[in-house]
């Protein structure tokens, strides 16, 4: 299902006023450096929220705090109304089952084939599935990302774009409700970047996901954003529709959108 032309920006859902993620006054630092100073944002149901910002502005740290790969120093993160920081290990495990995380590097397991990579989360999150159902599900998602032939390949045999697509397949195979994309198009050529952007929109439509897309790739933002937030120096610099960013006279924003 590789789409050669990028679909137009999907409009936000009608029930978009329902928040799935709410972050208030988030602070996170490492040693003496404060990466996130005071970040507050909301992700609404069914929308693609693009978080823009320069390298080192704390974008990746932000989404890692959402799944508690990093613990915030201060502030609250509510996902589906649950405070992430207050969850115990079981509660956090249950919450993570609803969230898909596409890593910047793909993070495919090197020692496993593509099929085993996809089976890994499926067996652990959907424990009641039979082997036949698992195989069907894997074939379906591989077809969705246009890589059915890669089933028995090792990650080392895949190109950068293929690794990203398999990684996306591994994320959506468990039907997450929220998708967190960490620089999905970084290091890819423009054509493959467009394909990944198309896939993000397809995932939003088909799996009805709400997504946060961390990027500094403006073409990816243009292709996928329903709403945009720009982070600068650890704080929310501006928030709004993409069109507002495009028309902005602000020097920093203009430097991104030129």
């Amino acid at each position: 299902m590789i789409v050669t032309q990028i679909p137009t920006i999907a409009p936000a859902k009608t029930n978009s006023d329902k928040q799935v993620i709410e972050i208030n006054n988030l602070r996170k630092g490492f040693d003496q450096q404060e990466v996130l100073k005071n970040v507050s944002l909301q992700l609404f149901n069914g929308e693609n929220l693009v978080v823009l910002g320069k390298s080192g502005s704390g974008k990746s740290v932000l989404i890692k705090c959402i799944v508690r790969l990093l613990n915030p120093d201060d502030g609250t993160i509510d996902v589906f109304g649950e405070n992430v920081s207050s969850l115990n290990r079981d509660g956090l495990g249950e919450l993570r089952k609803k969230i898909g995380f596409l890593f910047q590097s793909g993070a495919l397991y090197d020692s496993m084939t593509v099929k085993q990579n996809l089976e890994f989360p499926l067996r652990r999150i959907k424990k009641d599935l039979t082997q036949k159902e698992i195989d069907e599900k894997i074939n379906e998602v591989l077809e969705n990302v246009g890589l059915s032939e890669a089933l028995d390949k090792m990650p080392s045999q895949l190109s950068g774009g293929m690794r990203k697509r398999i990684s996306l397949a591994r994320t959506i195979v468990v039907d997450p409700m929220i998708m967190l994309y960490d620089e999905p198009t970084t290091g890819l050529d423009p054509v493959t970047s467009d394909e990944i952007s198309s896939l993000i929109n397809e995932v939003q439509k088909k799996y009805k996901t709400s997504s946060i897309i961390i990027t500094h790739d403006i073409e990816c933002a243009r292709a996928t954003a329903n709403r945009v937030i720009m982070l600068h120096d650890g704080e929310v610099y501006q928030e709004g529709k993409l069109e507002e960013f495009e028309k902005s006279a602000d020097a920093l924003i203009k430097s991104f959108f030129k």
């Binding site: 993570r96 590097s105 890994f120 652990r124 468990v174």
Partner: peptide
Amino acid sequence: VTEQIDAMEVSST
């Protein structure tokens, strides 16, 4: 380094 351990953790493993 390649975030595979993080990926495992977010897969509820």
